[in-house]
C-alpha cells in the first residue's frame, strides 16, 4: 500500500474509533472528557520537537521552539488540569460509601 494511502486508512478508522468511544457519555463528564481530549492533542509536542530538531537557521529554529513551548503548555497543562477536576470526583466516593449502610468493599 502506498504510504500516504496507509495513513489515510488509519485516519478513517480513527475517526470511527473516536466517535464510538465517547458517544454514550453522561453530561456529568463532558467537562473532564473535553479537557482530557484537549490534553491528548497536546501530543503535537512530538511534531514540534521533530521540526525544531531539524530546523535550519535561526528563524526556523525560533518558530520551532515557540511551537515546542505552546505544545508543552497544551500537553502538560491539559493533563494536570484534567487530573485536578477528576480528583474532586474521587473525594466524593468515601461520602457515598458512608451514606450507604451496606458499606462497601473496604
Amino acid at each position: 500500500m502506498d504510504p500516504s494511502i496507509a495513513l489515510l486508512t488509519i485516519f478513517v478508522l480513527a475517526v470511527f474509533t473516536g466517535y464510538e468511544v465517547v458517544s454514550k457519555v453522561s453530561s456529568t463528564l463532558h467537562t473532564p472528557l473535553m479537557s482530557g481530549a484537549n490534553a491528548i492533542h497536546g501530543i503535537i509536542l512530538v511534531g514540534a520537537v521533530i521540526v525544531a530538531g531539524h530546523a535550519d537557521g535561526a528563524a526556523e529554529l525560533t518558530v520551532g521552539l515557540i511551537a515546542v513551548v505552546l505544545a508543552t503548555l497544551n500537553l502538560v497543562g491539559g493533563f494536570v488540569v484534567t487530573d485536578r477536576m477528576l480528583e474532586m470526583f474521587k473525594t466524593k466516593k468515601p461520602v457515598e460509601a458512608d451514606a450507604t449502610p451496606r458499606g462497601g468493599a473496604e
Binding site: 475517526v15 473516536g18 492533542h41
Partner: peptide
C-alpha cells in the same frame, strides 16, 4: 501517533 491522537480528538470533539 500524531495522526491517531489528533483524529481521535477531532472525532470525539465533534460528537461531544
Amino acid at each position: 501517533l500524531l495522526l491517531i491522537g489528533g483524529t481521535l480528538v477531532g472525532a470525539s470533539g465533534s460528537i461531544l
